[in-house]
Structure formats: C-alpha cells, structure tokens
C-alpha cells in the first residue's frame, strides 16, 4: 500500500522510501559487500561451534593426558594440537568460545540497555537531571578503559561475573554519551513539542516518539564496541582476573600456555588467533553495517 499510494508532488530525493524499504535497502547493500559476507560467515561459524560445542568438539576439553602434552598442530587425533596438560586444543578452543564470547557480548548488551536508558533520561529531561547524570558519567571518562576494567575486576575479585560487571561499567559511559546527544537533538524537534502538548505521559512520549528515532545510531555505536569487548574480556582473563583454569577460555588459555611458547610456539599462540579473528570479524561487520546505513563514523 505504501509504494502505490504516492502523491504527485513529492519531495525530491525521497521517492518511494518508507521506513521498511530503507531497511531493505540496507540489507541489499550488505548483501553486495563481500567483506561483510566473509566476516559474517566466519563469525557465524565460530558462534555456531560455540553453541553446538558438545556436537562439534572431538574431545572432552577437561580431560588431561600427560603423555600427549604439547603436541603440534596437525597431530593425529588432535587437529590443533594439545596444551601443556595434554588436553585437546581444538575442543578447548570450541568450548572456550562460549565463555569468551559470552563475556564479550553480555557486557555490551547490558551496557546498551543501561546506557540508552541513562542517555535518554538525561537528554529528555534536560536541566539538572542531565547535569547530574552526565557529570557523573564524565568521571569515568577520566580513566582509560583498560585501567578501569582492571581496577574494578581487581578490586572485586576474579570471576566471570566481575569481568562482565567491570566491562559494563566501562561501556556504559560512552554509550550514554551517544544516546544523550542523539536524544537532545531529537528533543529539540517540534514533533516532541507536539507530543508534549497532547498530554501524553513522558514515558509514552519516549516510547512512541523518541525511542525509534534514536535507537539506530546508538545500536550501531554499541555494536562497534563488541570487538573491543572481546579483547578486554579475554585480556582480563589473561591477567588472571576472570575465569580460572582449568575452565577453557581463550584468555586464560593464552596465559597458561605462555611457557609453552618455547616448546610448541604456534599451539601456544592459537587462543590469541581466535581472539584476533573474532575481534576482526566484528569490526568488519560493524563497519559494513555503518557504511550500508550511511551513518558517518
């Protein structure tokens, strides 16, 4: 109904683009972007393996075998070799993906929710509320993110939950800033005024009028944080602040295999490869999405 009911005097440049077809246009552009496709396939494979780990893995990730310690890549029965305790690397990497990716994706997810909430509140209500929220957030900008993450994890103690918590704290400030600036932009437009004089509650106005107009850019920004999150989360585990051995996780594995670099260097470097590849894929994917949506970085 949208496409056919187009009136004769149209504004130039917007012919036939309803909100639905803009979405389709983005998808169409993405489908032609081979970088996006390759990155998505690779990421999909990793994610898929992580989810289906029991089906895809060849060994029990925890089973130790001192005799077959530090076998090289391409050994019989162990495609990617074994670690310092004889555990199969391939299986450990697959299972490790679960924790590594969870510790990377969950904080961004939570920070997106919290950050958007705070940013919208600050932008919509303005004035004192805005000052309080944004100034408090400014304090966190005084710390470099790595330091903040390490300090919080270090203070709270090593556990997966604390890693997620500290990363949420690291990501909420930048996301809030983007949400607040976009909200402030939109709130200045007349249709918000019009909504206000309708007598609708603030919550309704935010829900109906504000949210869909700001969520796009904020979401794109948040998704660009995923690659950083992967590196930070695994980095924290690498320092011993996250998962504890023998639980498989890429950062922890990279750490415990450090001494193995003199014996089987490339096996020892494997977990890091996965971190790198995942981070790279997410970066490429988010860059492609941003280009396809025409949003300037």
């Amino acid at each position: 109904m949208n496409e056919s009911a187009v009136s004769p005097n149209l504004d130039a440049g917007h012919i036939g683009t309803s909100k639905n077809s803009r979405f389709r246009e983005t998808l169409y552009r993405l489908a032609k972007d081979w970088v996006f496709i390759v990155a998505s396939v690779v990421m999909g494979a990793i994610l898929g393996s992580a989810i289906l780990a029991p089906l895809v893995a060849t060994h029990d990730p925890l089973s130790i075998s001192i005799l077959s310690r530090l076998q090289p890549i391409g050994s019989e029965g162990h495609i990617l070799g074994t670690d310092e305790l004889g555990r199969d690397m391939y299986s450990r990497l697959i299972y490790g993906a679960r924790l590594s990716l969870a510790m990377a994706l969950l904080p961004v997810f939570f920070a997106f929710g919290i950050g958007t909430g705070l940013g919208v509140a600050a932008g919509y209500f303005g004035g004192t509320i805005n000052s309080i929220i944004m100034r408090s957030i400014d304090v966190f900008f005084a710390f470099p993110s790595v330091l903040l993450a390490i300090a919080i994890s270090g203070a709270l103690g090593s556990s997966t939950t604390n890693v997620i918590l500290s990363l949420v704290i690291v990501f909420v400030p930048p996301i809030s800033r983007v949400a607040e600036s976009r909200t402030t932009e939109v709130v200045g437009l007349e249709y918000i005024d019009a909504a206000r004089i309708s007598g609708a509650s603030d919550f309704t106005i935010i829900r109906v009028h504000l949210f869909s107009n700001i969520v796009g850019p904020v979401f794109v920004y948040a998704s660009s944080m995923i690659s950083v999150s992967i590196i930070l989360a695994s980095g924290l585990s690498f320092l011993g602040l996250g998962v504890k051995p023998p639980t498989p996780e890429w950062g922890v594995m990279l750490n415990t295999l450090r001494n193995a670099i003199y014996v089987q260097p490339w096996v020892a470097a494997l977990p890091g490869c996965f971190i790198f590849v995942s981070s790279l894929c997410f970066n490429l994917i988010s860059d492609s999405i941003r280009t396809a949506m025409d949003i300037k970085p």
Binding site: S227, I230, I231, S234, G235, F238, L254, R258, I261, Y262, P265, W266, A268, A269, P271, G272, C273, I275, F276, S279, L280, F282, N283, L284, D287
Partner: peptide, 23 residues
C-alpha cells in the same frame, strides 16, 4: 589499519616473542 585496530596487543606481543625470541 583495520587489522591493527582489532588485534589483541597481548597476543601480538606473544607472537612477536615467538618470532623474534624463540624461533
């Protein structure tokens, strides 16, 4: 540049050690 931005620097350090110190 994209590669450089995505690389975990601690892993890169290990790889460099492997290449320049171990091998």
């Amino acid at each position: 540049a994209i590669g450089g931005v995505s690389v975990p620097h601690y892993w890169l350090a290990i790889v460099l050690v492997i290449i320049f110190a171990v091998e």
